[in-house]
């Protein structure tokens, strides 16, 4: 197969299969990302509230939410009166 600069992924795809785990991981991330961003569409929410809405363990919400902050999809909101939990809001 001819290698074209800027499209070398096609060459790799011809020779090697994408690991099934990588595909599953991407699917899961896309699903969680959509669910978090949908949940934050209307309201600012805390991690506990997101966990309840998404039926997802809090530690997973923390991981994905912090990742979405890093990628610029989510912004940090206010902290509660006890200075314990922040709210988070959708940015994009």
């Amino acid at each position: 197969m001819e290698v074209v600069k800027g499209q070398t992924f096609r060459y790799r795809r011809e020779k090697y299969e994408v690991p099934a785990e990588a595909k599953e991981q991407l699917k899961y991330y896309v699903k969680i990302k959509k669910a978090i961003l949908d949940a934050l569409k209307e309201n600012e929410l805390t991690i506990a509230q997101l966990s309840e809405i998404l039926s997802l363990p809090k530690h997973e919400v923390v991981y994905y939410l912090m990742t979405l902050i890093k990628y610029g999809f989510v912004q940090v909101g206010a902290i509660d009166e006890m200075d314990e939990y922040y709210t988070y809001k959708r940015l994009k």
Binding site: K5, G6, Q7, V18, P19
Partner: peptide
């Protein structure tokens, strides 16, 4: 490469075409 899905998105946006899957 262990986690890449070979979608080609990176190559499409690279301004210097420096990504080389070969």
């Amino acid at each position: 490469m262990e986690n890449c899905t070979l979608c080609g998105a990176c190559e499409k946006v690279c301004p210097t075409k420096c990504i080389d899957f070969t």
